[in-house]
Computed example of a mutant assay.
Amino acid sequence: MRKDSRLSRMLHILVHMEQMEEAATSDHIAKILNTNPVVVRRTMGCLRDQGYVTSVKGHGGGWRLNVALQDISLLDIHNALGESSVFTIGLSDENTQCLIEKAVNREIGAALKASEDFLLTRFAEVTLDKLNWAKT
């Protein structure tokens, strides 16, 4: 199963952007992430829609941080990217009348919910400035 790495990749780029004097082009970001500039534009667009970055058109254009790193949490970026769940474990629903399957789904679902609540609470506590190793 493929992992969704958008959160970690965008956190990586946002911290780099704070250190850049010029706007970061989609091409430049795509090279750093080894991906396509179209993917970068689409993903950065989610961050722009929430006000975390701004796009500058024309010569010297690209993406710029719009909010200080200390004012952005991991949860903010997680939410801006439209992440629905931090886990990709799925529950079985093939035999929904089966009492055993219902019990398995109930216990796995409860464990996933508790784990996700804990993780998202932690995400809210960590701001992006804490990820900048050059300043720690």
Rank of each mutant, 00 (worst) to 15 (best):
V126K: 11
S92H: 04
V53D: 05
E83S: 10
N105Q: 07
L14K: 09
L112H: 01
F123C: 09
K31C: 04
H78Y: 07
L75C: 01
I108Y: 04
E107D: 03
S5H: 06
R41L: 14
N95I: 00
S5L: 12
T121P: 01
D117V: 13
D27L: 10
L112I: 06
I77G: 05
A80K: 02
L7A: 04
H59S: 11
F87R: 11
N132S: 13
V15G: 05
V15P: 07
R122S: 04
S26Q: 08
A24C: 09
L131D: 07
K102P: 02
E107K: 03
I100W: 03
T43D: 13
K3F: 03
E116R: 05
M10W: 01
E125G: 04
Q97P: 00
R9D: 11
K135E: 07
L75I: 01
A68G: 07
D49V: 10
A124N: 14
T25F: 14
A30E: 04
L69C: 10
V40A: 13
G51L: 04
M10G: 00
G45A: 13
T121I: 03
T121E: 14
L69N: 14
R122W: 00
V104W: 10
S115W: 09
L128E: 05
G109Q: 01
R64A: 02
W63T: 02
Q19P: 14
W133C: 10
G58V: 11
K57H: 12
Y52F: 14
R6H: 03
M20E: 14
R64I: 07
F87D: 06
L120F: 06
D71R: 10
H28A: 12
G58L: 11
F87Y: 14
V86Q: 13
T25R: 15
H28D: 08
M20H: 12
M1I: 00
K130M: 13
V38A: 07
M1R: 05
F123Q: 11
V104F: 09
L99A: 00
L11M: 09
W133F: 15
G109P: 03
V126G: 15
L74G: 05
T35M: 12
S26V: 05
S73N: 09
G61V: 00
Q50P: 00
S8H: 03
A23R: 06
T35W: 08
N95L: 00
I77D: 04
R9H: 09
V104M: 11
D71C: 12
A134G: 13
H16L: 14
G61I: 01
M20P: 00
K57R: 15
T96G: 00
S8V: 09
I13K: 10
A68D: 15
T88C: 07
S73P: 02
L75T: 00
N79L: 10
E21K: 13
N132P: 07
V67T: 15
L14I: 13
R42A: 12
M17V: 07
S5Q: 04
Q50E: 08
R9F: 02
E125Y: 06
